[in-house]
């Protein structure tokens, strides 16, 4: 009986078998890398907003406090976004004819809120709460980055579970005195190590339970 395959087919078969495995591994590698990459975690991307609101301008240059606009941040889970009236406390008198602000004026007239595109968002199976972090000395800057340098809002961190845990495993190096949590570009004082140690006790931070699954998945 004549041979069906030429001798060289052995090589091809081997190449295909090994190649398939290598390709499979590569796909897994690339994929696991990708989902953690900035492309998938949406870090440093600014979505198009109905009004190009600039934190650099309002926070960096004018020095307006976060709480003027994000009033819920000290008392509730959600920081909240400013109502149209809040913009109008100033823009009823300044930049009143700017085209950029036309959607704000329309929103005030019609009562329909501005539809801001959300920059941060956790899946619904994760529970997050702003108030506890603020009261336990975790600063806006630690999680949201240099907001006062952002002409358009973007994510500074991935918000993956690994990122949350990197702090929950050892919160101490990330703490500040609660009075300083709204400050941007905060310079720690000389004796910060001692301050942080005492903060754990003074604020009653329970480091033993902070990585329990039910803290974030309830």
């Amino acid at each position: 009986m004549p041979q069906i395959f030429h001798r060289s087919a052995n090589g091809i078969a081997r190449f295909v078998l090994w190649g398939a495995q290598v390709a499979f591994l590569l796909v897994i590698l690339v994929w696991t890398g990708l989902v953690r990459s900035e492309f998938f975690t949406e870090v440093a991307r600014a979505p198009r907003q109905p009004v190009p609101f600039s934190h650099r301008h309002h926070v960096g240059e004018l020095g307006i406090d976060c709480r003027y606009c994000h009033g819920g941040v000290e008392t509730s889970a959600s920081a909240g976004l400013p109502a149209t009236e809040v913009c109008m406390t100033c823009h009823s008198q300044i930049w009143t004819n700017a085209d950029m602000l036309a959607p704000v004026r329309e929103s005030l007239a019609s009562g329909e809120p501005l539809r801001w595109q959300r920059v941060h968002g956790l899946p619904d199976f994760v529970y997050f709460n702003h108030a506890i972090h603020i009261h336990k000395g975790v600063a806006c800057e630690t999680c949201h980055g240099d907001v006062d340098d952002m002409p358009l809002m973007m994510r500074a961190h991935s918000l993956t579970m690994g990122w949350c845990l990197s702090c929950h495993r050892d919160p101490e190096p990330n703490l500040r005195p609660p009075a300083e949590v709204f400050a941007m570009h905060w310079k720690p004082p000389e004796d910060i190590e001692r301050v942080r140690k005492s903060l754990i006790d003074v604020l009653g931070i329970d480091t033993a339970t902070m990585t329990d699954c039910y803290v974030c998945h309830r």
């Binding site: 889970a77 959600s78 909240g80 976004l81 009562g111 329909e112 809120p113 539809r115 959300r118 899946p123 619904d124 199976f125």
Partner: peptide
């Protein structure tokens, strides 16, 4: 749909009401 459960988050838009809130 664990990541997007049938409930509203704070500030989420709704198609049920004319003003979208």
């Amino acid at each position: 749909k664990m990541a997007d459960q049938p409930r509203y988050d704070p500030l989420e838009a709704s198609s049920e009401f004319p003003d979208g809130m």
